[in-house]
């Protein structure tokens, strides 16, 4: 398999990028693929915490870039999945320590051995975001069904279009069907209607996400739980499989959405 670099970004902070990277990585690695995650959020790292690998960090991405260690030495192996690795961000450096071309070089080196390289972008549209999208073959935009998050996603999509990056796909995270039904939350259709990009996943609001991230064990490995299932579905779609959207509540919406996205 030729390897793929996938960047997860959002514009707005706190919408679930790190959660998405940790879960997709686990789901892909559980399929027997070799996966390397890179934490692109230099200065504010937390992918290591969500993956429960914080106490194993010796070297980080800045050490690789500045030549203090070999790439292999900074790759931390996951506790459960032998094919899953993390390259952590530096906690104490500012984001200018890494440049877009450093990221391209690092990913080209990783392509030799990994099937999937997942990059956790920081929020915003500044240097860390530019670093994260520079090597991307595919870009996933995470948003919440909430106007400010959707607007930021729209801004990021516009920037990607202007730079002629590959067309991004959308993950709508923290859907709450009851709130949509009461008219208190944007529906999947409302979000799609504005952004008009391929929807690759819809993840429900699920307290297990918070429990799992506090424990440092990815939810997607667990058989039960709707959010875990949603992340596994996204991993399958990344692999090119057609997986129907989960029937969270109103079936007609999902059917229409599948039609909309398939036509593109």
């Amino acid at each position: 398999m030729t390897s793929k670099v996938i960047t997860v970004t959002s514009g707005k902070g706190g919408v679930g990028k790190t959660t998405t990277v940790a879960n997709l990585a686990a789901a892909l690695a559980a399929d027997g693929k070799k996966v390397v995650c890179i934490d692109g959020d230099i200065g504010l790292r937390n992918l290591d915490v969500i993956m429960g690998l914080e106490n194993r960090i010796v070297y980080d991405v800045v050490d690789i870039v500045e030549g203090r260690c070999r790439t292999r030495q900074a790759m931390i192996r996951d506790k459960r999945l032998p094919d899953l690795f993390l390259i952590p961000a530096a906690q104490t450096r500012d984001k200018n320590a890494v440049s877009p071309s450093d990221m391209v070089r690092l990913c080209n080196e990783l392509r030799e051995e990994a099937d999937w390289i997942l990059i956790d972008s920081p929020a915003g549209i500044e240097r860390g975001f530019r670093n994260s999208i520079a090597p991307a073959d595919e870009i996933l935009i995470v948003t919440n069904p909430e106007m400010s998050a959707v607007r930021d996603a729209d801004r990021v999509i516009g920037l990607l279009e202007a730079e002629e990056k590959p067309a991004p796909s959308l993950i709508i995270n923290r859907m709450n069907p009851d709130m949509v039904k009461r008219g208190d939350m944007l529906s999947v259709e409302d979000v799609y209607d504005l952004l008009r990009i391929n929807v690759i996943g819809i993840v429900p609001e699920d307290e297990n996400v918070i429990i799992a991230s506090n424990r440092g064990t990815p939810l997607a490995l667990d058989g039960k739980g709707r959010a875990g299932q949603a992340f596994r579905n996204i991993a399958h779609r990344l692999n090119g499989e057609e997986v129907p959207f989960m029937d969270l509540e109103a079936r007609s919406i999902w059917e229409r959405l599948t039609k909309l996205t398939r036509g593109r």
Binding site: R151, D152, D154, R155, G158, E161, L194, R196
Partner: peptide
């Protein structure tokens, strides 16, 4: 010939014709 997404600003002295949407922002 495209949708104008959030954060885009177009200033022009003449007329402007958009073949696409003009999104919030």
């Amino acid at each position: 010939n495209k949708t104008l997404r959030s954060g885009t600003r177009i200033e022009f002295a003449g007329h402007v014709i958009v073949f696409g949407d003009v999104n919030p922002g």
